[in-house]
Simulated scan of single mutants.
Amino acid sequence: MRTSYHSVHEPICGICGKRSRSFESLREHLIGPLPKAECERVFRERGCDLCLNIFGSRNALRVHRDTCQLSYGYNAVLYRFANLGIQDDLRIDNGKSRAVALACKMVGGGSDGSLDLCAKICIIDEYENILFRSYVKPYLPVTHYRYETTGIRPEYLRDAMPLRQVQRKIQDFLCNGEPMWKIRPRGGKARILVGHGLDHDLKCMELEDTANYPPLMKTSKLSNSLKYLTKAYLGYDIQVGIQDPYEDCVATMRLYRRMRSQAHRNENYPLASDPQNKNNFASWRQSELERMTPEELLAISRSDFYCWCLDGKDYV
């Protein structure tokens, strides 16, 4: 038998102490169709519907909402309507790895225009400053520009940077001077790449994907859309009308920073996959586990996912 994967890194109800596999599960526990009555009563009085935390008073909740409720941002409005050319501030440095967010906008290829082709890309740093922004010339002919949502016209791609060149430039920036064969899943000089639905070809990098992060997924283990996550956890709308990859970058970076800022208890070996954690128990030890209290079981259990709060610590 195996110990539970419940851990200190999972969302917890601030009222009854119940742990959930995802924030969506916790939300259902608090204000869903069949919530726990006492938890629902307290949450509706002193709970934040964005971060799902409970506060000591209504006044404390009002003060908290001023920082928890984010807005679309003035810069996003400017970038959406500005037809900017190439902006390239990608630099390789030997400092500590920093998180950057990447997003693309796709046009259509193929006979029916259903094939997604990257035509515009944006990379920002943790402070929402643009590091790289450019139109991209796809490797296949574009048959549908999807202008209603992308705002991209044929003339924007005529002299755009070729896709291969963009890929090499971004790869060099993310590796940050470290050879590809030396890059480790955690640690090293390579940068942390944040995004939503990141391409599988980037799995060699250190990725933080809001589409596949267990606490942000549905209770059915399916991914939520970035539009939904931004509204539910940041409190504002994105992807309305003509869209720009900058707003997607900002949304994913804000989600990442919010998840990373969670204060969880430090553990020497926080993952179930760490070799120091022997999570297998023989059947004859079942009675030993049954005698343990929930607190003791939690102490020996480890998370089966990498919590982003560890990015702000010295765990490697």
Rank of each mutant, 00 (worst) to 15 (best):
F43E: 01
L255K: 01
A299F: 01
V316K: 15
S303V: 05
A299S: 11
T293Y: 11
T210P: 03
T150G: 00
L163K: 03
H6K: 10
Y306M: 06
Q165Y: 11
K189A: 14
I123G: 04
A211H: 00
L30G: 02
I12L: 12
G32Y: 00
T3C: 12
G56T: 06
G188V: 03
G241M: 10
R19P: 03
N94C: 10
E10G: 02
S283Y: 12
G14T: 06
F281E: 02
L115Y: 13
E206T: 04
V250C: 14
Y5M: 03
S303W: 00
D248E: 08
N266M: 06
S71I: 09
E148L: 06
R186W: 09
S273G: 05
N94E: 14
I152S: 01
Q165M: 11
A37S: 08
E208Q: 07
L271C: 15
E288Q: 14
D244F: 03
E290D: 12
Y145S: 08
R62M: 10
G56Y: 08
W181V: 04
L226S: 09
P35Q: 00
I12P: 01
C16G: 10
Y236I: 05
V194P: 01
D93P: 01
K36G: 00
H9Y: 15
L84W: 15
F55T: 02
L271N: 10
Q276V: 07
D311Y: 13
I152E: 00
S220E: 12
I170A: 14
L50N: 02
L34R: 12
C118R: 00
T219C: 10
S22Q: 01
H200F: 07
P245T: 04
A211P: 02
L226P: 00
G108D: 11
M1E: 11
Y306D: 05
C39Q: 04
Y228S: 11
G113S: 01
R260G: 04
K231H: 14
Y79K: 05
C118L: 09
V8R: 10
D209I: 02
K278D: 15
H264G: 03
G312M: 08
K231E: 13
K313P: 04
E10T: 03
S7K: 06
V42F: 15
E295R: 09
Y74L: 07
E126C: 05
P294I: 03
Q262K: 11
I123A: 06
G195C: 02
M161L: 13
A99M: 08
D172G: 08
L157M: 12
A263M: 07
G113D: 02
P179Q: 11
D199P: 00
A76H: 06
K227M: 10
E10M: 13
N224F: 14
G95C: 08
F23A: 01
N268S: 06
A119L: 00
P35T: 00
E38I: 04
E288L: 10
N268M: 09
Q262N: 11
C13P: 01
K182M: 13
V42A: 15
V250R: 12
Y145Q: 08
T67A: 14
Y147T: 07
K231Y: 13
S20L: 08
L90W: 07
G110I: 02
R46S: 12
H9T: 03
G312I: 04
Q276H: 15
Q286H: 11
L297M: 03
H144Y: 10
D66H: 09
F81T: 07
